[in-house]
């Protein structure tokens, strides 16, 4: 880290960003898959509403999403006090930052997963059912493995989005160094103080490098998975 010339504060922001993005992505995986599967496979009243809700953070100004989260889960919000009784507090905590990032990345994740689930041949799923696989087993042994490249892409998109999330996070959990100050918040802070340009540029380059690495890893994994599915070993 010394080689990169990072200050402890900058290092903290990077580690926090990675942690927030990882937790946001991992925590979104199961609900994301569930919503993607429902949207891809089920027809029910209210489907359009669910679809709209999922996509809302994509089209709303991030500040609005953050403010809605604050109204709902803030210390004096709609559900905040109730959750606090169970020891669950989001406001001004890094967990709140993770929640904001998860919400913002959710539409991207669901979209990629849904497309890849829709591409899975339902006739193969039916064949699995005739062989005795219950719906959950069909999902785990057929749908999920076949949709895995798209699921991976969804996860990486959500991770990248979380690494870059700024508006909703800063609105919901503010910009507390060591707790809620992620990379974008740190860059923003540095650009607001005199003489911060050098550090801001360093963090910007690191931000670019991290995002590119995530994309490269996902590309490599997706390619390997695709090879396993399509090609025949000689």
């Amino acid at each position: 880290m010394d080689a990169l010339g990072l200050t402890p504060d900058e290092w903290t922001a990077i580690v926090l960003s990675l942690r927030v993005a990882a937790v946001a992505t991992l925590a979104s995986l199961v609900p994301g898959l569930a919503v993607a599967w429902v949207l891809a496979r089920k027809r029910f009243p209210g489907r359009a509403l669910l679809d709209g809700l999922v996509h809302l953070p994509l089209i709303l100004p991030p500040v609005v999403t953050g403010y809605v989260l604050l109204l709902a889960l803030g210390r004096r919000g709609l559900f905040g006090p109730t959750l606090a009784q169970f020891g669950i507090v989001f406001s001004f905590r890094w967990t709140g930052a993770a929640l904001a990032c998860a919400v913002m990345g959710f539409p991207l994740m669901v979209r990629a997963m849904r497309l890849s689930i829709e591409a899975v041949d339902r006739r193969v799923e039916q064949a699995a059912a005739t062989l005795g696989a219950a719906p959950l087993a069909v999902f785990l042994t057929v749908t999920l493995p076949l949709a895995l490249p798209g699921v991976l892409v969804g996860a990486v998109l959500a991770f990248a989005k979380a690494m870059g999330e700024f508006g909703a996070t800063i609105t919901f959990v503010s910009n507390i160094p060591g707790e809620t100050q992620t990379l974008p918040s740190a860059i923003y802070t540095l650009t607001q103080v005199p003489g911060g340009e050098g550090a801001a540029l360093r963090l910007t380059l690191i931000s670019v490098a991290l995002s590119m690495t995530a994309l490269l890893i996902s590309e490599l994994l997706a390619r390997r998975l695709g090879r396993r599915l399509g090609a025949e070993a000689p």
Partner: peptide, 19 residues
Amino acid sequence: PTHRRRIGTVFQQARLLPH
């Protein structure tokens, strides 16, 4: 439900699990 009927089915296309 299908998975509890215990009826083996062979379709026009093999419909094997590709993975």
